[in-house]
Amino acid sequence: MSNLLDLLIAGLATGAIYAIVAVGFTLLWQTSQTINFAQGEFVMLPAFLMLAVMHAGAPFWVAIVIGIALSLLLLGLGFKLLLVDPMLRHGVLPLAIATMALAIGIKEAAKQFWSAEASPFPSIIPGGDITIFGRIVALQSIGVLVLAILAVLGLTTLLNRTSIGHQMQAAAQNPTVARIVGVPVERMILLTFLINAFLVALASLLITPIYLAKFSNGEVLGQAAFIAAIVGGFNQVRGAIAGGLLIGVVDNLSAAYVSTQYRAAVPLVLLIAIILFRPQGMMGRPEERTV
């Protein structure tokens, strides 16, 4: 039973990452019906941008700042203007397919212009272990968990407590009405893309020291975040958070107590069960049919 605590902490730390990525995912879905199959690659890329800046001789913190700025520019603004805007009015699917192609493109570019090798990446959290309740826990796990929670708290405060947040929610829930009451809907949508870009850059910063910078990192992450988003409820930020944490923990527990060969299956079975018994997700609200 003492192992359980280890498993929980490790699972929560992994789950916190999934949560950040899943939150961005649901934000894009809510405000602009964008299913971003390249979300995992979006997390993979900022680390490479930062590495490139460091390679040019800049210190780590400069690289972080430039890396985040670049990802706001490329993965936020660029993504919206170049891909989402021209395609959005043609429905969900062509855009989703285009993001699949984008995922291939980003992955191949990282491999071609950087390396197929995994590169080490510095951590903003000090290495080493600490002892909590007699268990040895990696500082990194704790740090990731804390930072992820802070990011998510910040985001929910923004959404629920500020006027910009309320405008964003209005723009997401009913753009027509929002426009009538004077919400700058276009700007709000752009803001969600920028927030997503920031979140993926943050996730990149947190996980790359553990995963190492590698072109293929996005595959696992993207899928996990997608599943977390569905499990939590595709249309709720706090659902995505719960979904992410749950997937992280369930993955670890199923590896320990069910089967290592089938560890990836348990969250999926959970997913199917949730769809059958609570289709709006754990915390989502039922979607109204628009027909």
Binding site: A10, G11, T14, I207, T260
Partner: peptide, 10 residues
């Protein structure tokens, strides 16, 4: 590509 080995080690 597995990143978390807590369960395996336990």
């Amino acid at each position: 590509g597995q990143a978390d080995f807590a369960a395996d080690v336990s």
